[in-house]
């Protein structure tokens, strides 16, 4: 008897979320299949997107092979952002490291100014991450939201502790939110439920908090899998958002990445590929060689 592989079809759809404005805009999510299950009924209209990150200050502790692709622009966020774009990134991710009270505690106004300049200089959408200090971000992110009003940044992290302050302002200025919870599907759902009271759910992207291979990676991996299963198979509206895997910084923090360039690139590359398998819709990388490697492996479109 001839074997016929079963074909599944699922009731749930991941919401399609647009970030960026006008001809800079890109779409995330929209799939009604599990990650890479192209053999099932349904489709994934938008291939995963890749962002390259930059910092709002000159990094102190990056190994030289991390700095190398950006060494002429490392003190200039605007030029750095353009450089990321020139390497072929689908989006640019500005990380407001200097605003962290334990780093430089730089003022919200300065962060807002930098974000605006970077956003205006590039022709791809801008992702902005605050320092993840809940109190400081509650000051910084609203300022960024208003200086970049109407540009539809992907802005976060919006946390359980500050979502009321951050999310409302960000939405008023037409941005999309990164809802971040610490590697726990129950907390993740709870934050989305709270946001849903005043926020259209196609303005939210889930950040389950990514970690690097060997440093708790598997927790994030299974969590992403479960988010997709809950959304696509069980039609749970509160998990049907695209997922962002913010992995570059985590990978480059590892001992392995600091030991050699080869290890750093492999670490970031394998971590990124694995998150693709788990269903991440947008991945934040640090090194352009990683981006090229992933593009090569996936045939350019994340497949």
């Amino acid at each position: 008897m001839e074997y016929k592989a079963p074909i599944e079809s699922y009731p749930g759809v991941v919401r399609e979320v647009t970030i960026g404005k006008g001809n800079k805009a890109i779409k995330l999510g929209g799939e009604n299949i599990l990650p890479l299950h192209f053999f099932d009924e349904g489709s994934r209209p938008n291939a995963p997107k890749f962002a390259l990150e930059l910092w709002d200050m000159k990094p102190e502790d990056w190994p030289e092979w991390g700095i190398e692709p950006f060494k002429d622009v490392i003190s200039d966020p605007v030029a750095w952002g353009k450089k990321c774009e020139s390497y072929g990134a689908d989006a640019v991710c500005l990380r407001l490291v200097s605003t962290d009270p334990s780093v430089k505690d730089s003022p919200p106004e300065q962060a807002a100014e930098i974000a605006k300049k970077v956003a205006e200089a590039i022709n791809v959408p801008l992702i902005v991450y605050g320092s993840a200090d809940a109190d400081k971000d509650a000051q910084v992110l609203p300022k960024v939201a208003s200086s970049c009003s109407g540009m539809n940044l992907l802005l976060g992290p919006v946390l359980k502790e500050n979502y009321e302050v951050v999310a409302k302002v960000a939405l008023d200025h037409g941005h999309t939110l990164i809802a971040q919870t610490p590697v726990d599907i129950n907390l993740l759902k709870e934050l989305n439920v709270r946001l849903s009271k005043f926020c259209p759910l196609d303005r939210v992207v889930i950040d389950p908090l990514s970690s690097a291979l060997g440093y708790g990676f598997e927790y994030t991996f299974s969590l992403m899998e479960r988010v997709k299963q809950a959304g696509v198979i069980f039609k749970d509206e509160m998990t049907q958002m695209p997922i962002i895997a913010d992995l570059g910084t985590e990978c480059w923090k590892t001992r392995e990445a600091k030991e050699s360039k080869e290890q750093a690139l492999i670490w970031e590359g394998v971590t990124a590929l694995s998150f693709l398998l788990a269903g991440a819709n947008v991945l934040v990388l640090r090194h352009p060689d990683t981006l090229n490697l992933i593009r090569e492996i996936t045939g350019g479109n994340g497949k």
Binding site: N186, K189, E190, V193, A230, D236
Partner: peptide
């Protein structure tokens, strides 16, 4: 049947 969160009564 539905995924737990502390907000389960609010959905």
């Amino acid at each position: 049947k539905t995924l737990y969160s502390d907000a389960w009564l609010e959905v």
